[in-house]
C-alpha cells in the first residue's frame, strides 16, 4: 500500500502537480520548509499564551478601582529606547536573513551577533527598570500605590517577555556559531528570524498596555 502510494506522489511532486500531491501528503502545500512551518505554528501558540496573560491583566485592571500609574517620564523614556532597540535589532535580523540567503557567511554571522546584542541591551535596560520598581517597594502582591495585583501583572507580563528575549539571544548566538561553521543552513537563520520578529511584535503590545497606559501624567 505504502509503496504504491509513494511512487506516483514523488513523481508528481517533481512535476509540480499540486492537485495530485497535496492530498497525498507528498507535496509542500505552503511551499516552505517544514522547520519554518513548525516555527510558525509555535509562534501562533505562543501568541495565544501571551494573549492569555495580557487579557488577564486587562481583567484585573478593569475590575480594580485604583490601578497604579507609577511610570515617570524617565521610565517611559527608558521603555521607548527599549522599543527602538528591539525594532532596530529586527532590522539587523532581516539583514542577517538576507545575507545568509546570498551565501555571505561572515555578513550573516555579523548581523546575527548584532541582533543578539540588541537583545542584550534590551534586557539590561529592562532589568534596570525592574530594579527601580523593586527599590520603590513593588512586590508581586504588594506595592505602595494601589491595588496589590499591579506587581503580579507587571512582573508576569514583562518577565515572560524578558524570558523570550533571553532565550532568543541564546538561540541567535547558537545559530550564528552554527552558520559560521556551515553546520546550519540559511533556512535555520530564517527560522530563528521568525522567532526574533515575534518577540519584537509582542513588545509592540506590552509597551503601550503596561507602560504608556500607566504613565504618570500629573
Amino acid at each position: 500500500m505504502a509503496s504504491s502510494v509513494d511512487s506516483p506522489i514523488s513523481a508528481a511532486t517533481v512535476h509540480g502537480d499540486h492537485d495530485v500531491t497535496v492530498w497525498g501528503g507528498g507535496a509542500s502545500p505552503y511551499s516552505i520548509p517544514s522547520k519554518k512551518l513548525g516555527m510558525w505554528l509555535f509562534i501562533v501558540s505562543d501568541a495565544i499564551t501571551f494573549s492569555a496573560v495580557i487579557f488577564a491583566y486587562g481583567y484585573l485592571r478593569l475590575a480594580a478601582a485604583d490601578w497604579p500609574r507609577p511610570f515617570v517620564a524617565a521610565s517611559i523614556g527608558n521603555a521607548t529606547v527599549m522599543t527602538f532597540v528591539l525594532l532596530s535589532s529586527s532590522v539587523a535580523m532581516v539583514l542577517a536573513v538576507r545575507a545568509s540567503g546570498l551565501g555571505k557567511v561572515s555578513g550573516a554571522v555579523g548581523w546575527l551577533v548584532a541582533t543578539a546584542l540588541g537583545g542584550v541591551v534590551f534586557d539590561i535596560l529592562h532589568i534596570h527598570e525592574w530594579l527601580g520598581l523593586i527599590g520603590e517597594g513593588v512586590r508581586p502582591f504588594h506595592n505602595p500605590w494601589g491595588t496589590p495585583m499591579f506587581g503580579a501583572a507587571f512582573f508576569t507580563m514583562t518577565g515572560l517577555h524578558m524570558l523570550h528575549v533571553t532565550i532568543g539571544v541564546v538561540y541567535l548566538l547558537v545559530i550564528a556559531v552554527g552558520f559560521g561553521r556551515r553546520k546550519f543552513s540559511a533556512t535555520d537563520v530564517e527560522v530563528s528570524g521568525l522567532y526574533w520578529h515575534f518577540v519584537d511584535l509582542v513588545w509592540m503590545f506590552i509597551f503601550p498596555l503596561v507602560y504608556l497606559l500607566s504613565a504618570k501624567t500629573t
Binding site: 529586527s90 528570524g193 515575534f198 511584535l201 509592540m204 503590545f205
Partner: peptide, 13 residues
Amino acid sequence: SVIKAALIIAYFM
C-alpha cells in the same frame, strides 16, 4: 499597535 504588528508580520516575517 495592530498596525505595527501587521507591518512586522507582513514585511519582517
